[in-house]
């Protein structure tokens, strides 16, 4: 056969393979998506939305459900009537509310969702912006027993990585506390306890700013069109609409420890400093590994050795030389010592 013909045939063959098998966009992946039964997913998502309304004391309507599920009004009405026939919700004069069964079903799904988010944050390298959507998929595929096993393997966590409480097996969940950031007054120290993970775009923006639950902030200015605050020594600026996605609790000045901290990556060669903390953004196995090495508040570190390309850097920690990559040492906070 002519080499040119076979060359073209080869390229066509490889492209055809890609079109069929490429994960996510290939024909097989598309076909699987179409085949999937969405009715259970829709019911569970609607229940979650209703529970969310209840938790934040907002009235819930057909419109808000169709908005949150991105469904047409007609389809939403179908979902609602099937929820009613399953005795999971009651509607009364246009106001939809959960029955006790509906509430416990919703809490179960929320529990599974938040457990998955915790797992993704601690035990995998799935990117922060993808936690929510991956958990959104898996919550519908996980049985109650699997969820309990997952919870046990995670050490029965209480809080998901966004700061939301995880309902217990019996469906208990603590009362909501704290205020949203746009309601905080000037000159007050506070700690972030929750960052809302929906809508996705807003969450991506907030997490890109490096904000995370547990972070301590100091409010500099709260005006109508902007909110200015200091977070871990850096000044941040947010529109009030974005700030309303952040929940904070005021803390006393005494508890406030995170004054202007440097990160370990700014330590110069042959200089020493004291560790004051590890950022919450360092999670799971990586965090445990650092704690094992003795990277805990009070430990003295010394920048000892630079790799020939500048990254990683070797630090003397408790008598041993430990190499840390820059993206790790960025998340370790230090204080100068004499």
């Amino acid at each position: 056969m002519n080499p040119l013909t076979s060359l073209i045939a080869g390229i066509v063959f490889i492209v055809a393979l890609l079109i069929v098998f490429l994960p996510g966009v290939g024909i097989i992946a598309r076909w699987k998506r179409i085949r999937k039964d969405r009715s259970r997913e829709l019911i569970e998502d609607a229940l979650k939305h209703l529970y969310d309304c209840e938790y934040t004391s907002v009235d819930c309507s057909l419109n808000s459900i169709s908005g949150s599920l991105s469904l047409s009004g007609e389809k939403t009405a179908q979902v609602i009537s099937s929820l009613e026939s399953m005795n999971l919700i009651t509607s009364h004069e246009n106001k939809i509310s959960l029955t006790p069964e509906g509430r416990s079903y919703a809490l179960r799904i929320i529990r599974i969702h938040r457990l998955w988010e915790r797992h993704l944050a601690d035990n995998t390298s799935v990117l922060e912006k993808d936690w929510h959507s991956v958990a959104e998929q898996r919550e519908h595929e996980t049985s109650r027993e699997e969820a309990d096993r997952l919870a046990a393997s995670l050490g029965n966590p209480l809080i998901d990585p966004h700061g939301d409480p995880i309902p217990s097996i019996t469906g208990e969940i603590p009362e909501r506390e704290g205020i949203t950031l746009n309601n905080l007054e000037n000159g007050i120290f506070a700690a972030i306890i929750h960052i809302e993970d929906e809508p996705k775009e807003v969450y991506a923006q907030l997490s890109a700013m490096g904000l995370y639950p547990g972070m301590q902030i100091y409010l500099l200015e709260n005006s109508k069109n902007k909110i200015r605050f200091e977070a871990d020594g850096e000044e941040c600026l947010l529109a009030p609409i974005l700030a309303s996605n952040i929940t904070v609790v005021p803390i006393s000045e005494k508890e406030h420890v995170k004054e202007k901290f440097q990160s370990l990556s700014s330590l110069k060669m042959d200089q020493s400093a004291m560790i004051v903390g590890i950022s919450k953004a360092m999670r799971g196995q990586q965090r445990r590994r650092l704690l094992d090495f003795g990277v805990v508040p009070g430990t003295i570190v010394k920048a000892q050795l630079e790799s020939l390309s500048g990254d990683p850097t070797g630090y003397e920690i408790r008598g041993a030389t430990i190499a840390l990559r820059r993206n790790q040492s960025d998340l370790i906070y230090i204080k100068q010592v004499d």
Partner: peptide, 17 residues
Amino acid sequence: KSVLKGEASAFSLELPP
């Protein structure tokens, strides 16, 4: 970037004497 994207990853390297 593909099949192993989600697997857990933690870097540590000790430089012994």
